[in-house]
C-alpha cells in the first residue's frame, strides 16, 4: 500500500497524519520542541511501526507549518493556508466554503470556491489575541486546563465582557477580574466571546459564504463554537479531527502539487 504522510510543524504542536487512499489511518500530535527534523523522523517511524509498515511503503512526505523550512529532508513543502484549505475541503466532502482556523499563534479565515480553490484569506498579524497561545496563557492565569474551557464556559449565562483585543492587556484584565472575585467560568465564557468577536472582525472584510468550518486545536471547544456561531449568525461545523486538518491537507496535496 502507498502511504502519504503530512507533517504540520506548528508553533505549539507538531501534528503527523498517515493517509492511505483518502483515509486518515494514523495521527499523532506532540508539543513543539527544538529539533524539528528529529521529531518528524521519529513520528514517521512511530507511525510506520503502529501501522506495521516499512519505510518503502511511504509514497510521499509533505511538510507544512511554521517549521517547514527548518527540516532537512527529502519531503515536499506546502504553505499552511493552502494545506488547510485542501484538508478542510476534502474532509468536509467538498462542502467547506469558509474555514476558520485557530492555530497556536495565528487565526485565519479562509474562503474557498466550490471546487476547493483558495479564493481569499485573512490572518491576524503578530498579536496573539484569539490564538491557541492566548488560550494557554489564560489557562495558566486561571489555573485551569484549556481542555475543559468548553465544558466550564457552556453553562454560563452571564459572561463578563473582556474588551482588550491585545493578549497582554487581556491578561491584565483577567487578573484584575480574578482579584475582584469573579467566577472563572464567567471569565472563560467572556474570553470565548471576545475571541468570537475578533474572528468576526477578521472575517468582516471577506465575502463569506456558508458552509463554515472551524479547525485547529481549539475547535473541540463547544462553548467557543457556539460563541462564534452567535457572533457570525451562522452555523459552524467542526470536522472530526480538527487539529489534523492541515496535516491531512499537506498529505493529500501531493495529488495536486
Amino acid at each position: 500500500m502507498g502511504l502519504k504522510v503530512g507533517i504540520d510543524l506548528g508553533s505549539t504542536a507538531i501534528k503527523v497524519v498517515f493517509v492511505e487512499n483518502e483515509h486518515l489511518v494514523w495521527k499523532k500530535a506532540v508539543p513543539t520542541t527544538p529539533g524539528q527534523t528529529r521529531i518528524a523522523d521519529h513520528l514517521t517511524a512511530e507511525g510506520l511501526w503502529a501501522l506495521r509498515c516499512t519505510a518503502d511503503t511511504l509514497e510521499s512526505v509533505v511538510f507544512t507549518g511554521y517549521g517547514k523550512g527548518l527540516v532537512n529532508g527529502t519531503g515536499k513543502v506546502i504553505d499552511e493556508v493552502s494545506a488547510n484549505s485542501l484538508g478542510a475541503f476534502l474532509l468536509s466532502g467538498g462542502k467547506a466554503r469558509t474555514i476558520i482556523n485557530i492555530g497556536g499563534q495565528d487565526v485565519k479565515v479562509i474562503r474557498l470556491s466550490a471546487t476547493g480553490k483558495l479564493l481569499d484569506f485573512k490572518m491576524n498579524d503578530k498579536c496573539a489575541a484569539g490564538t491557541g497561545r492566548f488560550f494557554e496563557l489564560a489557562g495558566r492565569i486561571l489555573d485551569t486546563p484549556v481542555e475543559i474551557f468548553g465544558e466550564l464556559g457552556q453553562a454560563v449565562a452571564d459572561p463578563v465582557n473582556i474588551n482588550s483585543t491585545c493578549a497582554v492587556f487581556a491578561e491584565s484584565e483577567i487578573v484584575s477580574m480574578m482579584a475582584k472575585g469573579i467566577a472563572k467560568e464567567r471569565i472563560i465564557q467572556g474570553l470565548h466571546e471576545s475571541i468570537a468577536r475578533r474572528i468576526a472582525g477578521l472575517a468582516g472584510g471577506l465575502d463569506m459564504e456558508d458552509d463554515f468550518y472551524l479547525d485547529g486545536g481549539s475547535a473541540n471547544n463547544q462553548a467557543l463554537v457556539t460563541a462564534i456561531e452567535e457572533e457570525l449568525c451562522r452555523d459552524v461545523y467542526v470536522l472530526p479531527h480538527p487539529q489534523f486538518t492541515v496535516a491531512y491537507g499537506a498529505a493529500r496535496s501531493v495529488e495536486t502539487l
Partner: peptide
C-alpha cells in the same frame, strides 16, 4: 488579489508575514 501587511521595522513578525505571502502566491 489584495494582501495588506501591517508591520514595522522589527523582524519578529517575519514568519507570520511569510505564511500570508506564501498563501497569497498560490491564490
Amino acid at each position: 488579489h489584495f494582501l495588506k501587511i501591517e508591520t514595522d521595522y522589527v523582524q519578529e513578525d517575519s514568519q507570520n508575514i511569510l505564511t500570508r505571502l506564501e498563501a497569497f502566491g498560490r491564490i
